[in-house]
Computed example of a mutant assay.
Amino acid sequence: MMCSIYKSAKKPDTYLYVPFDTDFEDLPEGLMSVWGEPELVMHLDLAKREQLALVDINELKSKLDEEGYYLQMPPSQEELAQLIKGK
């Protein structure tokens, strides 16, 4: 599955994952109103990945199939501490 990753112009460290061929008109209006103008970061082939750095790949695939998007919020201070410790 190919997906596209966009970063938010309004929300730092917030990313939106969508299937590659997604039309932003199909996404929830509320999401797009708080999101701002999306800026493309990259396209990613999830079939060639077993894991991602900050996102559970199975949860990502499930959300893309069920909801048509996945919103990655910035990690909390506790989550950052755990990442640094390698947990």
Rank of each mutant, 00 (worst) to 15 (best):
M1E: 09
M1Q: 07
M2I: 07
C3H: 12
S4W: 06
S4R: 10
S4Q: 13
S8W: 07
S8T: 09
A9M: 06
K10R: 15
K10D: 14
D13E: 15
D13P: 05
D13S: 10
L16A: 06
Y17D: 01
F20L: 05
D21M: 09
T22P: 01
D23G: 02
D23L: 13
F24R: 04
E25Y: 06
D26S: 12
L27R: 04
P28Y: 06
E29V: 07
E29H: 06
G30H: 00
S33C: 07
S33E: 14
S33V: 10
W35K: 00
G36L: 03
P38Y: 03
P38H: 05
E39H: 01
E39W: 01
V41A: 01
M42S: 13
H43D: 13
D45A: 08
D45K: 11
L46P: 13
A47T: 13
K48R: 13
K48H: 14
R49K: 15
E50S: 14
E50L: 08
E50A: 09
Q51C: 08
A53S: 14
I57S: 00
E59P: 04
S62Y: 09
D65G: 04
E66W: 04
E66G: 03
E67C: 09
E67K: 14
G68H: 02
Y69C: 02
L71N: 00
L71S: 01
M73L: 11
P75C: 07
S76M: 07
S76H: 05
Q77W: 15
E78L: 06
E78C: 00
E78P: 03
E79M: 09
L80A: 06
A81T: 12
Q82T: 11
Q82N: 12
Q82Y: 11
L83N: 09
L83Y: 12
K85E: 15
K85F: 10
G86P: 00
K87L: 13
